[in-house]
Design a protein around this nucleic acid. Sequence first.
DNA 1: CGATGTCTTGACCAAGTTCAAAGCGCGTGG
DNA 2: CCACGCGCTTTGAACTTGGTCAAGACATCG
Lengths: 233, 233
Amino acid sequence: MNDFIDLFDEFDRRILPHHLTDADILRLRQKAFALHLRAQGHADFAGPEDHFAYVAKGAVKLVAYLSGSREQIVAFGFPRELIHIPGSGPNGFSLIALEATELLAIPADGLLAASGKDSTLLRLAIEQTILALGRSRANSIMLGTHSARERLAGFLLAMFERGACHRASPETIRLPMSRAEISDSLGLTIETVSRQFSEMRNLGLIETTGRSIVTVRDWEGLAHAAGHMPAAA
Amino acid sequence: MNDFIDLFDEFDRRILPHHLTDADILRLRQKAFALHLRAQGHADFAGPEDHFAYVAKGAVKLVAYLSGSREQIVAFGFPRELIHIPGSGPNGFSLIALEATELLAIPADGLLAASGKDSTLLRLAIEQTILALGRSRANSIMLGTHSARERLAGFLLAMFERGACHRASPETIRLPMSRAEISDSLGLTIETVSRQFSEMRNLGLIETTGRSIVTVRDWEGLAHAAGHMPAAA
DNA sequence: CGATGTCTTGACCAAGTTCAAAGCGCGTGG
DNA sequence: CCACGCGCTTTGAACTTGGTCAAGACATCG
């Protein structure tokens, strides 16, 4: 279990540009705060302000709640990633841990305010937001044009690319999310996701062990099933 | 037909922060360029660089091309809006005019480079990118969880909100896009969109005149059809 | 006023959802 | 350490929505 100092240090090394002045870093450190979430724990950032969150350990989902009992997972966050959390807008968003998670939260305008003369931090913020925008648009494309098979295959490939979770071999990952969470992110039902898993298993594309361990047996076939489109959720 | 000076001037008044220095504005002006597109004309921003485009007149769509003949409209742009165009990434994007359009294009890193000491322009860029991210995420939610009826009703309401095109009365707009473009943006087929129009007409929610003029007869019903249920637990 | 491309409508079909029940992994407690 | 039971997952069958194919209607433009 890391404390704030370790977390911030890791964030500094992994994400922050290297040529920041000490003053910049200090200002930023004063705005940032650490969060330790248990599985299913949720972080609510009250107020209208956007936040960025650096995920150090674990995994999170960013969920939009809708009228009815419908919900849509808008993004996942994995270790070493920085994710953008919108402040209160037309839709309510919240950040929920899939498993025990350590993260560092930074109010967006903290990032702006902490930015010194050379505005390196601002550039970081833009860069990250544009990244998030790209992922979100890829997501829109996936939801608008892809079949269930393509969505799940693309999802699995994306999980591998993002190194979702510790893998014994490079062909194997442990998915930290349930079928319900996968289906919410792909705009499908649990049953359809499950059926797709079974069919892809029968086709020899993947193998599954227990509930959440997936091994790829045929990368080419999987990429083909995805429609050659590795999307990011 | 505006020339570059008029266009830039309008952009300055409508979008740029008011306290920019003359030097900032001058630097920006050197990076920006005007584009006049005919209906169906496309602007291709070669190279890996992102751009922003200020729409002065007309309307545009931002399209992602996919393997196969599938395409997905990722965003529309209407007058007074600033839209973000990603540089060449995994998917090819292009900006296409729905009708005769005048716009001002600004390379994203022009915005960054032109930014002076107080980095006001950087803040503008962030703000706009975050806005685009919000719209894109709303789009994901729509595509992931809404039925055809809800999508079209929501689309129409959004068009009214954004003042898509000159309206005779506040109940009436002229949609500048074809059914095919509507369906591509909603992740549906032309036929489904057409059927939904007919059904909503039969339900007395809307009236249509010619191909593209829509008059709302029942705002509440339309909002309800869009799934904007206000008091839903 | 006629040609052309867009839009509408219908019949049929397939993908995905819903509802229901059985199977199985995983944590708990004996 | 194994048995138990809960809850997640899988599977099945009926159904619904939206997609596909095809033909006819209608605006809009020359």
